[in-house]
Structure formats: structure tokens, C-alpha cells
Amino acid sequence: MNVFRLIGDMSHLAAIIILLIKIWRSRSCSGISGKSQLLFTAVFTCRYLDLFTNFVSIYNTTMKIFFLASSYATIYLIFMKFKATYNRNHDTFRFELLIVVSVILALLINHEFSATEILWTFSIYLEAVAILPQLFMITKTGEAESITSHYLFALGSYRGLYILNWIYRYYVEGHLDWIAVLSGIVQTGLYCDFFYLYITRVMKGKNLTLPA
């Protein structure tokens, strides 16, 4: 563990908690892409299958359990409890395409052709693009509530911090997993224009309204 990965995990945890608080307090999931949340749930499910077979640390296990529980809770809130507030007509990104491409890529490009490794690789590729339905929804509605932009900032920062973690691990431990690194760079890159808008607008108290 290093400070970059710890801050990254805390940023990821914060994002998930911010989203749950936003939906629970406002009793509404308006502006939230249910499709992105479904993809994140698939990412955690496929990546954390080794939860009970491969013990790494108490921290690792508790975080995995929390991420799994919170992502299922989030899709429950969106598609069941507050489904009347879900903007289905704005959440129209073809996310099936993201799943199919990730499956094909995972079958073609992986470290080892085994079930757990393919599922892990699939979760890495899927996570890189899982935010696209959410970003697409924001461009469609042209704006985002400030709490949603805080959620996105925390979520986008987490994988950016993981890139620093991978640089650290490369130089200190000589460890490099280029599948995770390249996917992490793509994932963080997708947030670039959002980060620009967040820093130039939201940080100054303005709302995140995309130029029409």
C-alpha cells in the first residue's frame, strides 16, 4: 500500500458515499445514469469474485464488501425505490456496446486465459468506459447538480491517483500491470473535459452547465 493508492481508495469511497447520500437525502436519482451504475456493479462483481478465496488484508476485504454492497444498494435505489425519479429518457447511451467490446477485448488481450483472469480483465476494461453513459447524460441534459459533479470529481480522481500508485510501484517495487495502467489512463482521460469544467466552474461556486 502507498499514499497514492490509499487516497485513491478514499476518493473512490467518497464518491460512492456522496452518490448514496445525494439519492437518499433528495429521495431522487434525477441526473444519475442508472446504466453507469449497472456497469459499476458488474465491474465490482466480476473483479471481486476472489473475495472469499484470495485473502489480501482486512482493509482489502472490507473495502471490497463495502463496494459490492453499496453498488447493489445504489442500483436498488435507482431502479426500485426511487425509480419514478429515474430519467430513463435521458439515460440513452448504448451501454450494451461497452459490455460487448469489453468482453471481446478481455478474451483477446489478457495475462492468462483462465476464468478468473478473464473476468478480472473484463472488469478492468469495463470500468474504464463505465462512466460514459453518465457523461453522455450530462451532455444531453446540459447540466449537472453540484453534488453530482462532486461525485464525478471524486470518482475520476480515484483512478488518476491509481496511475500515480502504479508509477510508484513501478519504480519502488518494479511491478507493472500494463493492462490496468493503460485502462486507467483511458478511464482518467475520459474525465478530462469534465475536470476542466469542474475546476473552472464548480470550484468557483458556479453550476456545471455544459456549453450548449
Binding site: 495475462h111 500508485n165 500491470d177
Partner: peptide, 10 residues
């Protein structure tokens, strides 16, 4: 190989 090591990350 490289795939075991990365599995200590979330």
C-alpha cells in the same frame, strides 16, 4: 507472473 501481483489492488 504479472497477473498475481496486481490482485492486491481494489
Amino acid at each position: 507472473s504479472s497477473n498475481e501481483v496486481a490482485k492486491d489492488e481494489l
